[in-house]
């Protein structure tokens, strides 16, 4: 097996290109890879397609920093604060640059990842029938079920195959084998659909730890391109059993990013002027320590003995 540990700065520089479709947040409101979002902004990527069912303020931040040409997802905003100011500005006034919006619902983007992951050209769905998503997303086609004797509408949703997926996991080994627990949203489908996978691990453990419980492996190392040790990579989003949600930080973002100049000030302070995620954690200081989960609610061990 190949060791794949590298600093996040190097992983972002090595595996992302301008114009790529990048999954930043596949689990919905937890395990959002904010450390990767920040690094993409610092390295000044352009024309990205920000892909995520829901990614809280990650997409809004990337749009404000001028990194995004296209948004593919079901919900973009600030879960605590409501609307995302940068997303609104870009959609309503084309600032800092116009963006193309590819509308999906959560289930339809999930099934588009599923098709991308398992080699299906498209999936026929019923759950977006009657929605104007079919009209506003030109990639989705209204058709009919060829197996039905009566006229039965179905929506055809093409496979979605991102270039890179960033995923936050609780623990991984140096080969990229990763354990995730709690709800996972579309983590599995999005990662298998993606051309490249970059794992941001809260903790790096010995391979024996991961191997002791293969049912908890959502991402096996053989498909992973890089594994980066980034504690609290999802801040301000939570990571189950490790970090609580920083609701105050999200409200503050909402208050402090109303106008472009305000956003730029915020982005300088929290992203551009900091060299890396270590500095970000240091800046958060006690605020981050207060979010660390200290309690224990351990699962019962599972016996994998063969004889």
């Amino acid at each position: 097996m190949t060791e794949k540990l590298m600093p996040i700065k190097e992983a972002v520089a090595s595996f992302v290109s301008d114009g790529d479709g990048v999954v930043l947040g596949a689990a919905l409101e937890n395990a959002i890879p904010f450390a990767a979002t920040h690094e993409l902004i610092r390295q000044g990527f352009r024309n990205l397609n920000a892909i995520a069912p829901i990614s809280d303020i990650s997409t809004d931040m990337l749009i404000g920093a001028g990194c995004v040409a296209e948004v593919t997802g079901a919900w973009v905003g600030n879960v605590s604060g409501g609307l995302g100011h940068n997303y609104r500005r870009a959609a309503e006034t084309g600032l800092p640059n116009p963006i193309k919006i590819n509308d999906y619902s959560n289930f339809s983007i999930g099934m588009a990842f599923f098709a991308g992951a398992y080699g299906l050209p498209y999936v026929p769905l019923k759950s977006i029938l009657g929605s104007d998503i079919i009209k506003s997303n030109p990639k989705i086609i209204l058709s009919e079920n060829p197996f039905s004797e009566t006229k039965e509408p179905v929506a055809l949703v093409p496979a979605l195959k991102p270039d890179v997926a960033f995923l936050v996991v609780q623990r991984a080994d140096r080969f990229g084998n990763s354990h995730i627990w709690g709800s996972t949203g579309l983590t599995q489908e999005a990662s298998i659909a993606a051309e490249k996978i970059i794992v941001l691990a809260d903790e790096i453990v010995e391979p024996e730890v991961i191997a002791s419980d293969p049912s908890r492996v959502l991402i096996p190392g053989f498909g992973v391109n890089a594994v980066c040790h980034v504690p609290a990579a999802s801040h301000p989003a939570p990571l189950i059993g490790r970090w609580k949600r920083d609701n105050e930080f999200l409200h503050q973002y909402h208050k402090e990013t109303r106008e472009p100049a305000d956003f730029n000030r915020w982005c300088d302070e929290w992203v551009r002027d900091l060299p890396d995620h270590d500095a970000y954690r240091t800046k958060l200081g006690g605020q981050l320590e207060d979010l660390r989960i200290r309690g224990e609610a351990l699962s019962a061990p599972a016996n994998y003995a063969a004889e």
Partner: peptide, 26 residues
């Protein structure tokens, strides 16, 4: 929960659907 006004040139861009269309349909 998506657009107030025209989709290409909205007056207000709302956050979007989440899973609501799927729930409303199914």
């Amino acid at each position: 929960t998506s657009y107030i006004g025209d989709t290409d040139n909205p007056t207000v861009k709302l956050p979007g659907s989440g899973g609501a269309p799927d729930i409303a349909a199914m």
